[in-house]
Design a binder for these strands. Structure first.
Lengths: 247, 247
DNA sequence: AACATGGTTTGATCTGTGTCAAGTTCTGGC
DNA sequence: GCCAGAACTTGACACAGATCAAACCATGTT
């Protein structure tokens, strides 16, 4: 079972109702009763995106929704083309809830084939007003996003390439382990997971170049901390060492 | 009139009531009616801090409040001592509203003599529940924080030292210009303002070393873009050039 | 006034990461 | 299965920014 290439995207039955939504138990929708879900259901619409496809461009009218399957990337771009990936959005994550006004504050694109449950913005605002639980779930969600953003600022501003790549791997491994079940299990030696990003995307996420990322991967491999299978499949051989390298 | 050293901190009459609060018109409190303000007033308490003083340490029970006067710094620290300033909080900014649970997610310290209007956490939660306007103002505030954090990620990950320092100066100048009156006025050549931070703090904010920050300052001065008066007072001679340098 | 102190600037050198340029390995289409 | 193009790795080299060290300068103290 791979993360980046679901066997057949079209074979996945898109959950048409919130009741059967695989992302619900971990998304902001989890706080809603069956009755309240109907209100959301009415303004929800599923959209599919291929890997690499753009969802919205910075400045466009924002898209609002919950990731159901796959993975989205938010990136912010400098006028000369340099860009920084600002966040990775996994299943159950809210997207665009933090865009001020009606305008997207970043480019949004699919890293892997992705299903997004998008909400009508006006309808969502209305739902927020009538469902206090939803509103506070949104606040919670934003808190978590802010904490993540701040963690990443620490990484970008202070960590060196080795620490950056190690941190990245640990975060991803964690996310892969815990995405299926609700139980949080620790990463252990021997765990295998997929990197749903290319080297260029990893580089843009870490504030490095492709080449440096690649070098660190092979460095970790030579030191027996990880084992690469192809370019996107990783086995963690020495969690402790990886943790140490992450600083 | 200096930003960092008010003539006499004790001479400032602390606004004891929200009604006379200088920060109200721009803080989250602005959305509340006179009546609703009473509810907040009841749980508010003013606290003063000297420059350099710690307000809370990461992991302590969070402090929640609005900056009335002065400036606070939030910093996150790596185990080996390296640290990154995660945000600067100016008058009217909310502090601690984004801490998950009850725990501060960063160190908070005063950069200049500061007056903080702190709220009782439980009381504030209650106020949030009973005052929907306040809740959505909080969401707005968090949106803005998140946008700022993301802008800074772009800076930390992609900009070089020259761009970082130029960006920093522009941001500060802006903030200084617009802190008194409500009208947003553009920065123009000849504008003078104070830097309420030492070089070490600037460095920690930009992900650079003290020495590099210092070198960029003198570089800008040699190029006639700015003029330093002492170490903390800056005159901007060429806004356009600074903007260009900021990328 | 001389002094101690902490912050800042400046200089010399080192180093990690970027840059440029080949190779090499994957991947998907025929 | 083979081929073309893209993605990745590896190497040689350059350079921005870090590090180490020494002046320099404010500011308050005796």
């Amino acid at each position: 079972m791979t993360l980046n290439v679901p066997i057949a995207i079209d074979a996945i039955a898109a959950p048409l109702t919130c009741a059967s939504c695989s992302a619900r138990s971990k998304s902001i929708c989890r706080v809603l009763s069956a009755d309240d879900l109907h209100q959301l259901n009415a303004i929800a619409r599923h959209r599919r995106f291929e890997a690499g496809q753009t969802v919205v461009t910075e400045g466009d009218t924002a898209v609002l929704g919950v990731v159901v399957e796959g993975m989205l990337i938010e990136r912010r771009t400098l006028s000369d083309g340099r860009d920084q990936i600002i966040s990775l959005r996994f299943p159950a994550d809210l997207v665009g809830g933090s865009a001020p006004a009606e305008m997207a504050d970043a480019n949004l694109e699919a890293a892997t084939p992705t299903v997004l449950c998008s909400f009508d913005k006006a309808g969502f605002e209305q739902a927020l007003n009538s469902l206090p639980h939803l509103q506070s779930a949104l606040v919670d969600q934003m808190r978590r996003e802010l904490t993540q953003a701040r963690d990443w600022m620490l990484l970008l501003g202070q960590k060196n390439a080795r620490e950056k790549v190690a941190t990245f791997l640990l975060r991803l491994a964690d996310r892969s382990r815990n995405r299926h079940c609700g139980t949080a299990s620790d990463l252990v030696d021997g765990d295998l997971f997929e990197i749903p990003l290319g080297r260029a995307q990893i580089a843009a996420f870490l504030g490095l170049t492709i080449e440096t990322v690649s070098r660190k991967f092979t460095e970790f491999q030579k030191q027996r901390m990880i084992e690469l299978n192809g370019t996107r499949s990783v086995r963690v051989n020495d969690v402790a060492a990886l943790r140490a390298a992450a600083g």
